[in-house]
Amino acid sequence: MVVLARAALLCVAGTVLGIAGNRFTPRPAPLGAPVAASAEQPGAACENPGASVDHISVEEAKPLCLACTAAFIDARSAPEYAAGHVTGALHLPPEGPFEPLLPALRKAPAVIVYDRDRACSAANQVAARLQAYGLRDVRVLTGAWPEWLARGGPGESGACRLCAGDRP
């Protein structure tokens, strides 16, 4: 019981330390203000300060798909990809495999990666790996698949001929 009481005391002391010390940190947590999930914040979609990959909006990306001047990468799971994806998009989750798709991707002037969630964690990871493979113009789609759908981006049966047939 003594150990449990000390653990509880340590927990309370840590909580007090964290909350009291918050204001002295460079970017304090906004105590008193609600913090919602990224996906629920309009305009804050895909804002990931830890990511080193450029982003592209749906409005900018749509013409690139229609004109076949960009390859699209779907970083979601296989069932999600099968259920619906950007026209001509290739399926490439963070775990790969990357190598079979590289020849096709190297022919594309630009590569645009998206995933299921506006936090874009999986897309950022895939994009970073593609950059590591030497692909230069790799960008992450702001707002991800939900934003693409909401803004009427072309779906699976579109005419993105550059991407169509590239799947191994």
Binding site: A13, G14, T15, G18, I19, N22, A29
Partner: peptide, 12 residues
Amino acid sequence: VPYAAAAVVGIE
């Protein structure tokens, strides 16, 4: 959420 985040760091 912000209270929990600050508390976790203090406990750590």
